[in-house]
C-alpha cells in the first residue's frame, strides 16, 4: 500500500509544483492520474521513487518511509518500484535482452552485470515475461530496431523484472499511435491483475483513462481536486480538472501553494 501525506515540491524559490498533496493507494488497483500539462503529475510520480527530491511530506510504501532514504537503502527501495516512461528510456545500442535484464541491476553484483552473466532465474523470468508481452523473438535485436509499441513492451518487461511492489507509468502511451496505445493500456491493466500490483498511470487521454482504470485522480496546480470512480468523472468534473477554474480561485490556489512552500 502506498501512502502519500502532505507532499510538497518546489523548485528553487518559484511556486510549488506539488502542494500539500495526499493520496492513498491500497493494494492492487489500476489508477489514472489526469490533469493538464504542468499540473504536477510527472513530478508526483518521480517523487515516489525519488528521481525528484520532495521538499517536504512523507511517502510510505508498504510501511517503509521512502522520503529520507539515502545511498544503498534508497537503491534497495527503488528496485521494488517499477517505472515506465513516455520516451521508453531504453538503452538503444544494447539488445532487447540486455535492456530487460537491466531491470535486475538493483539485485545482481557488479561482475554479473559487467559480464552479462545473470543468474538462471533472471534469464528464465526474462523469457517468461517477454513471451507474456510478445517480444521474446526480439531478444537479441538491438533496442533501436523495434517499433514504438514494441519498445514500450520492453520498458514494461524491464519494470516487471524488478519484482516490483508498485508500477509507475509516466504517460506510457503519449509517444504511441492510438491502436498501440490501447494495447499498452490493456497490457498494463491485465498485468496489474495478474501480479496483483498497484499501477499508477499518468495519462493525457481521458477516454483511455476511463476505459482501462478503476480509479481516476485529477490534478490541478499541484493538488488533487478529483478522486473517484471513472463513472463519476462527468463533464463538470472534467471542466474542473482541465480549464474550469476561474482566475480568482486560481490565484487563491497559488496563495495556498506559496504558504505551504513557506511552511
Amino acid at each position: 500500500m502506498l501512502k502519500i501525506s502532505n507532499l510538497v515540491k518546489c523548485y528553487g524559490d518559484s511556486k510549488a509544483v506539488l502542494s500539500d498533496l495526499n493520496l492513498e493507494v491500497p493494494g492492487q488497483s489500476c489508477i489514472a492520474i489526469i490533469g493538464a500539462s504542468g499540473a504536477g503529475k510527472s513530478t508526483l510520480l518521480r517523487c515516489i521513487n525519488r528521481l525528484v527530491e520532495p521538499t517536504s511530506g512523507t511517502i510510505e510504501l508498504n510501511g517503509v518511509n521512502l522520503t529520507h532514504l539515502q545511498g544503498s537503502s534508497l537503491r534497495m527501495a527503488r528496485r521494488r518500484i517499477g517505472m515506465i516512461f513516455q520516451g521508453f528510456n531504453l538503452i538503444d545500442r544494447l539488445t532487447v535482452m540486455e535492456n530487460v535484464l537491466s531491470g535486475r541491476l538493483g539485485y545482481v553484483p557488479f561482475w554479473r552485470a559487467a559480464l552479462r552473466k545473470y543468474p538462471q532465474e533472471d534469464i528464465d523470468r526474462a523469457f517468461h515475461l517477454m513471451e507474456r508481452v510478445g517480444i521474446a523473438h526480439y531478444a537479441n535485436k538491438r533496442a533501436d530496431e523495434l517499433s514504438g509499441g514494441e519498445r514500450q513492451r520492453v520498458g514494461v518487461v524491464r519494470a516487471l523484472m524488478q519484482e516490483p511492489e508498485i508500477l509507475l507509468a509516466d504517460e506510457p502511451t503519449a509517444s504511441l499511435d492510438p491502436k498501440t496505445s490501447v494495447q499498452i493500456m490493456e497490457l498494463l491493466r491485465s498485468l496489474s491483475e495478474e501480479y496483483r500490483l498497484p499501477v499508477l498511470i499518468n495519462i493525457h487521454n481521458v477516454q483511455e483513462a476511463k476505459e482501462f482504470t478503476q480509479r481516476i485522480v485529477g490534478m490541478r496546480f499541484g493538488r488533487i481536486i478529483f478522486d473517484g470512480l471513472p463513472s463519476d468523472l462527468d463533464a463538470e468534473a472534467m471542466d474542473h480538472v482541465y480549464d474550469g477554474v476561474p482566475a480568482a480561485e486560481r490565484e487563491d490556489a497559488q496563495g495556498v501553494i506559496l504558504r505551504a512552500a513557506a511552511g
Binding site: E98, R116, D124, A126, F127, N140
Partner: peptide, 10 residues
C-alpha cells in the same frame, strides 16, 4: 517455474 533457457550476449 518457467522453462530453463540460456542466453548469451550475441
Amino acid at each position: 517455474p518457467p522453462a530453463r533457457r540460456t542466453w548469451r550476449k550475441p
